[in-house]
């Protein structure tokens, strides 16, 4: 993946994978990030995407999340997002926060999801 964005993968439980996105989600990184994330959307029943440390998030990032959410729904995967302040602000400004299942922390997401 490009230097813009990095992805960390953790499996705290057999039925759950936590994907942590670090860096900028933009024109360069959004397509590759989408591809990388989509790879985890089959098989594992619960997927948490941690966006707390995303340093840039615009409409392309939003589009990536929407696509991901739609895909998760189709493949019967429960997808939870942990947006962090930056991503949250973009969601609020575009009034899209209701489209996603959002938690304040990864721990919350794992506990309630």
């Amino acid at each position: 993946m490009s230097e813009h964005v990095r992805l960390r993968i953790a499996r705290p439980a057999p039925d759950c994978v936590v994907l942590t996105v670090l860096g900028e989600i933009d024109l360069v990184s959004a397509p590759e990030l989408a591809t990388a994330l989509e790879d985890y959307l089959d098989g594992t029943p619960c997927v948490v995407v941690d966006l707390t440390d995303v340093t840039f998030f615009g409409s392309l990032g939003l589009a990536t999340l929407v696509r991901l959410t739609n895909l998760a729904e189709t493949s019967g995967v429960r997808l939870a997002l942990v947006p962090g302040p930056l991503v949250k602000r973009t969601m609020e400004l575009t009034r899209t926060e209701d489209m996603f299942t959002v938690y304040d922390s990864v721990a919350d997401a794992r506990r309630y999801h």
């Binding site: 615009g58 409409s59 959410t69 973009t90 400004l93 009034r95």
Partner: peptide, 19 residues
């Protein structure tokens, strides 16, 4: 429209307008 789940890149100007 708000709430529409279209994965389009169409929200850029919504952001500009909002901020």
């Amino acid at each position: 429209a708000p709430g529409t789940r279209r994965a389009s890149h169409g929200r850029g100007l919504v952001l500009v307008d909002g901020i």
